[in-house]
Design a protein around this nucleic acid. Structure first.
Lengths: 219, 219
DNA sequence: CAAGAATGCGAGCGGTCGCTCGTGTTTGTC
DNA sequence: GACAAACACGAGCGACCGCTCGCATTCTTG
């Protein structure tokens, strides 16, 4: 059960050297997993189905992942990292000062676009019925996003009590996920309509708390 | 595989005569199913676990239900029927004329109370990843509630186009389900806080569409 | 090229799940 | 009490699932 022969117990160690071929396989497997998870959800997705979708034998899958959980965890981590890398900017101070309507556009549009391109992310966010250690990763994913929302609310309205701030952020995130589900469930004009509805809903919810006007630059 | 020996193929026939004991067993099994579904979700719930929770053998379970789907379908139908019987009144015209805030109280409070007492209902509403024919029942459940919401919106604002009305009802229902999830996930003061947040959110979303004032009685 | 590591395969193991079936018990009817 | 129908049991069947293992192939490194 020893994980590495190195004297220094490297936390992030991948004790196995990977060839380029291996990295490619991992990506294939994660793409296949994303597809299968989207279609059937995490619990009903079978590792054999993921391997088949990736055009690979079950044994090959387990060359790269110790178990089914690890696939979902790695997929969630990669998607979350990619989302923060490409769109994490939306939570910065420049946007915080915008009028609420434009703030929502600036935050929601990239998020929605990312989730439409990677619908597996929403699926993972929704699968709270998963068994085992994947629950921890699920919670981590959740917190990662919700913390950003909470911070944004805090900067925008510093007078809010910590409890109210948490409640507002939690509810705002829940509303966002709900709207995202509708958005992902439709296409074309319908999808755009639900994007507009979601923005209306969040505007109506947040306006009394955050104010509709932009905040003037601090001296 | 013949379902009945009767000459006339009765659609709604229960070809099996039930004794009082049987009806009691059915209720025990549905209660157990509700409990297990809540704990693990529909897919991960095993029929053996349901039977065990009901204090009954697997064979006995299949004396009353042809398969696992049928349990969820029957449970969903019963819960839906019971909700409409006890709280269906909230969608009537008397409430429609109230100021929006009171309208929301009148509609949401009974709904929330019912779902807190029967959390399995929300679980069934959420399990859209279920396989097989249960999907149809799931959709029926959904429509049953959403139609009520749509009608209420239609009465309150007759000028709305059918598309906008559908979008508004769908989004309102999605927001409600999201808030309900938070409410069911907390207890005591936290729960009350999320009830208030949900009402705030729906008020903010619906006020621009339905108006905040009450509608005067029609001549 | 030789050798070892990484990659790839797929039959199949242990386990669970949905569900069945043979058998025995309780209940209602005459 | 006699008889049939409804109810109850629980071992276990077939299917599938997560995962393993022995072995073949390909890559890297010297």
């Amino acid at each position: 059960m020893s994980e590495s022969k190195a004297d220094q117990p490297d936390e992030t160690a991948k004790p196995r050297r990977r060839q380029a071929r291996g990295e490619r396989r991992i990506q294939q497997l994660l793409d296949a997993a994303a597809s299968v998870f989207c279609r059937t959800g995490y619990t009903s997705a079978s590792t054999n189905a993921i391997a088949r979708e990736a055009g690979v034998s079950p044994g090959t899958l387990y060359q790269f992942f110790p178990n089914k959980e690890a696939i979902a965890v790695e997929l969630g981590e990669r998607l979350n990292r990619r989302m923060l890398e490409t769109h994490g900017v939306v939570f910065t101070f420049e946007n915080t000062a915008l009028p609420l309507r434009e703030l929502l556009d600036a935050v929601l549009d990239p998020m929605i676009e990312f989730n439409c391109a990677n619908p597996a992310f929403w699926t993972l966010l929704q699968s709270s019925d998963a068994p085992g250690h994947f629950l921890e990763e699920h919670a981590a994913l959740h917190d990662s996003i919700q913390t950003r929302i909470s911070e944004l609310i805090g900067v925008r309205n510093p007078g809010l009590s910590p409890e109210r701030r948490t409640h507002t952020a939690t509810m705002a995130f829940a509303l966002f996920k709900a709207g995202l589900g509708l958005i992902l469930g439709h296409e074309g004009a319908e999808r755009e309509a639900y994007v507009a509805e979601l923005k209306t809903a969040l505007y109506g919810y947040l306006a009394p708390v955050l104010g509709t006007e932009g905040v003037p630059a601090q001296p």
